[in-house]
Amino acid sequence: MIEASYLDIGGCLSYVEQCGAGQPVLCLHTAGQSGVQWRHTGPALAALGYRVIVPDLPGHGRSEPAPGGPVTDLGTYSAWCGTLLDRLGVNRPFVVGCSIGGKITLDLAVRRGDRLAGAVVMAAGPGPGRVNLTGLRRELEDVAAPSRADRTQLGTLAVVGRKVPPERADLIATMHRREDPAVSGSDLIGWGTHDVSAEIGGIACPVHLVAGSDDLWLEPELIRQAADVIPDARFTLLDGIGHYPMEELEDFAAVLDGWLTDLTARQEKRR
């Protein structure tokens, strides 16, 4: 059963869903989206013995806007997630994130890795993401362009992997067009400016980096190279998958369970 609540974190009421019991796992969504991206994974992962925590970041989904307006610094979201974990009294959780959620996950691993059981970083690397910052900042001045929703849908389809059935890819893209362009544009500025490259060598928890071979938002080889810098990190390349593994893979909860089990084993070896 999913338990939903609103928590006052950082001055805004934030929507958080939880289900299951056991080892906690914080699941973070992508730019402009919400925890709905984990709607299939959450209950299935809970059935495997985890306590799954899925928030809507400030300004996303059912959460109120961030007090200062849309956020362009992903470090702000990372601090918010740290406060959320503290408020929930969560002890040594896994953190799993995709896209900006992946960058936030990596930021959390850098800032408080000694308090995490491990991190799964999907579709993200430690350096600034590939994006046109000038264009994004200009677009924020005119976020009501009628074509924006269509561009979001078509852009999402472009980064879904070739192995994803057409009807599933179309559902992913249709769900994504619901986003608030002011929020998603600000998120992408954060994607293009966030950089923890100089700090990943000191991460204190086991990390698993994941990239899709069909992801046009990044270069998988750069993600593999980052795994060489992070102590004891592992890298997985998903053939035929794009930017949204938790939405594209049919039984993602089972795949994630395997990764989390591996992180646990590696954590035990460190002790």
Rank of each mutant, 00 (worst) to 15 (best):
R148L: 13
V159I: 15
V159N: 02
K163W: 11
A173V: 02
V183R: 08
A182I: 02
A169Q: 06
G161T: 14
P181G: 08
R178G: 08
W191V: 04
V196G: 14
V164T: 15
E199H: 12
A169F: 05
V143T: 14
R137H: 03
E139M: 10
P146A: 13
A145L: 15
E141Q: 07
P166F: 12
R151P: 01
I203C: 10
G185D: 03
E139D: 09
T193H: 09
L136H: 05
P146S: 12
L140T: 06
T156F: 01
V159S: 13
E141C: 08
G201W: 01
G190E: 10
H194R: 06
L140D: 03
V164A: 02
G190Q: 08
Q153C: 14
K163R: 15
V160N: 00
R151A: 14
I172N: 01
R137Q: 08
A173S: 01
H194M: 09
K163D: 15
H194Y: 02
A198V: 11
P181T: 10
K163S: 15
A145K: 15
P165C: 11
D180V: 03
E139H: 09
P166T: 09
L188H: 00
L136R: 00
L136M: 07
P165G: 04
A149P: 07
S197T: 13
I203W: 12
D170F: 02
D195A: 07
I189E: 01
L171I: 07
G202S: 15
G201K: 11
A144K: 03
P166D: 14
V183C: 12
R138F: 01
D142C: 03
H194P: 05
A149C: 03
G161N: 14
T152H: 08
E179Q: 14
L140Y: 04
T156S: 02
S186Q: 03
G192K: 10
P181L: 10
D142T: 03
V160M: 10
E141H: 04
I172T: 00
V196F: 13
R137M: 09
E179Y: 14
P181R: 01
L140N: 04
R137L: 09
E179L: 15
